[in-house]
Simulated assay, not measured.
Amino acid sequence: MAPPDSTRWPLTTEVSGDENEKRTADALLATYHYYDTHGKRAAGDPAQDTPASLRSELSLGGLAGLLKHLRFAGAARPARPLHSHVAMGGEVVASDRMDIHLLWTNEGKLFVKPVPRFLLSLDFCRSNLQCPDGCTCRDPLADACRGIPRRVAFGFLYTYACLISSESDFHIANEISCCLTLARELLQVHEHDPGVIHPRFLRAELRLSRLNTISRLTSLPHFNPYVRGHYTYGNLFRDNLAWIATATVFVVVVLTAMQVGLATERLQGDATFQQASYGFTIFAILGPMGAFALVTLYALFHLVKGLPSLLRSLGKRTAADRAVSSAKPRTMA
């Protein structure tokens, strides 16, 4: 098998089902979401702007800026089969965001993006994920270059070739047909030209908690996590107070043991044990208070940071309500 042209769609297997169904609108999503020039979320029709919808669907979001730090979030290895995650008590959760595909939480949730229908259409991929003749992919920001979306799409399909390696995995996924035939070709193409895969997908499963830490440290002073886990302050305090209470129980057990030790004759005159007991007692008093203060400061930080946008939205809403009320016709008594 000859090495594929890096500007072309390297696969040749048709897995979209009906080969007579070649209309672009049938393969695209119903809508795609994007942010307009004013920073507001909007929905568009993929059939009217296919390149924009593909950029949105295949975007890695903030993960693209963390590529050099991904070694701290996951090992460089192929994705484990789905049955392995389920056998270890994991939960496979569907998510349509490419940037959280194969992220897993400390609770065992593995986010998996279902395969879009257009990626299984050979004609569609050749028409929309191939660069024009003469493109060297040296300017990936150019409108005509499809290098980055193509590498993301191929890397995404490569993860599915690793996730679904047997009929057990296929029954768990239950998303696409003829996946096993496509997987062989994907692995052959990757073997001859590893560069066709986006670097993000060379590290399959990434730990979400570590990504959040990396994002906070690299986005200073905003200190934003990669995926926000708390959308209400009640959840924020409830989750953090849980581990504070657990740590407090451990501290109480240690203090009780120290108190029993101080009651014995051997440890009553031990200066080292007396000093350790004194230090741990101070820590037991200030530790929970300091932890609760940090959680409170974290909540206040996000409240103050989001206050300007909240006030702007309230001002716009008040102005809109005034405009609507002034436009209402007055009725005669």
Rank of each mutant, 00 (worst) to 15 (best):
L119V: 06
R150A: 12
P149E: 01
L187M: 04
L180R: 04
R97N: 13
D96P: 12
F170G: 14
F156M: 05
D96M: 07
L187F: 04
R146G: 07
L82R: 08
L129Y: 04
S168P: 15
D96Q: 12
P149Q: 02
C135N: 06
L180N: 01
V115K: 05
F124G: 08
R151L: 10
S177A: 09
A153C: 12
G134Y: 08
I148F: 03
L102E: 08
L163F: 02
V93A: 00
S177C: 04
A79K: 09
S177K: 13
L180V: 01
R146A: 00
T136A: 02
C145W: 03
D123L: 05
Q130W: 03
H69D: 11
D96F: 00
H190A: 12
H190C: 15
S95C: 11
G134W: 03
L82I: 10
L141V: 05
C179I: 02
C135T: 00
W104T: 10
S121E: 04
E175C: 10
D96R: 09
L102S: 05
V115D: 14
V115S: 06
H171T: 02
L110R: 06
A161N: 08
L141C: 01
N106P: 06
P149F: 00
A73R: 13
R151E: 07
P140V: 10
Q130N: 14
W104I: 05
L119N: 09
L70W: 08
P114H: 01
F154C: 14
S121M: 13
R146N: 08
F156W: 07
F170C: 13
L129N: 05
A153S: 11
